[in-house]
Simulated assay, not measured.
Amino acid sequence: MGNLDADLLDRWTKLAGPLVSAVGEDLVHRYREPHRRYHTVEHLAAMLAVIDDLAADATDADAVRYAAFFHDAVYAVDRSDNEEASAQLAERMLPALGVNPELVTEVARLVRLTAGHHPDPGDNNGAVLCDADLAILAADESGYAAYTSAVRAEYAHVPDELFRPGRAAVLQGLAQQEHLFRTPTAQARYESAARANLATELAELTAE
């Protein structure tokens, strides 16, 4: 087991308790599936770090952390219901751990929210989770290049003439939002860099 896996398992046991480490091991194993290139343990660890930074903006930071562990637990590039399947996994697994029903409901709701990243105004937990999931958009030049390369690798089976317009449509949907980030902290820290990265990638994707 690598150091990152061990760190994630330590975070899981602090969150859920030492008696349920097997569930944490299963979740980490899922993020280690060989077909993943971006939706990996590195992505999960980065999200948890951002959630720590934004925790004061959440109503229940631990609910957001649970949601981070589950949000990409089911991930396959050939299905469109990954978030729904991941939410259902949380709804099956968390009650068996003794997590109270209200928290289970909130975690599943948050996981489903990552399908579109559109938290309602006042949804503090949703804002923190979505901001953490999108924080990679504000990476520096090398970090953003690594991110886009990893996303392309996950879709290596899709030819360029299909991938480029599909990816561009996703980015345009993001760019058209009034705010990419919802918490004041993330807006101040990430918004301008993320919009610059989106504009650059869109220009590359749509160039003749």
Rank of each mutant, 00 (worst) to 15 (best):
A153S: 12
L48W: 11
H43Y: 05
S21L: 14
R30S: 14
P119G: 09
M47T: 03
A22G: 13
H71N: 15
L89C: 02
V77N: 09
I136G: 02
V111T: 07
L137Y: 09
Y75Q: 08
Y38I: 01
V151D: 05
V111M: 03
A108G: 08
A115Q: 15
G143L: 01
D57H: 09
A146Y: 08
Y155C: 04
A132C: 11
Y144T: 00
G126K: 10
R112W: 05
E91F: 00
F163V: 01
D81S: 11
D123R: 08
P121I: 04
A68P: 01
Y38T: 07
P159Q: 14
V28D: 02
T105I: 02
L162E: 10
E83P: 08
H118Q: 13
A138N: 08
A87D: 13
N125Y: 04
S86D: 09
V64D: 05
I136T: 09
A76L: 09
H29R: 15
D52M: 05
L103H: 07
R30I: 01
D133Y: 10
D62F: 00
F69C: 02
E83V: 10
L134S: 04
D78F: 08
E42F: 05
G122F: 11
G98P: 00
F163I: 01
G98W: 11
H29F: 10
A46Y: 01
A132E: 09
A49K: 10
Q88E: 15
A135F: 06
Y155H: 12
Q88F: 02
Y144W: 14
A73N: 08
L94D: 03
D52H: 08
D26I: 07
V20G: 00
Y147N: 03
A153C: 04
A90P: 03
A58Q: 05
V107W: 12
N100L: 11
L113M: 15
F70L: 03
D81K: 07
D57R: 11
A68V: 03
E83T: 06
Y75A: 01
P119S: 07
A139I: 00
G166Y: 10
D62K: 06
D120P: 01
V158P: 00
R152K: 10
A76G: 11
Q88R: 13
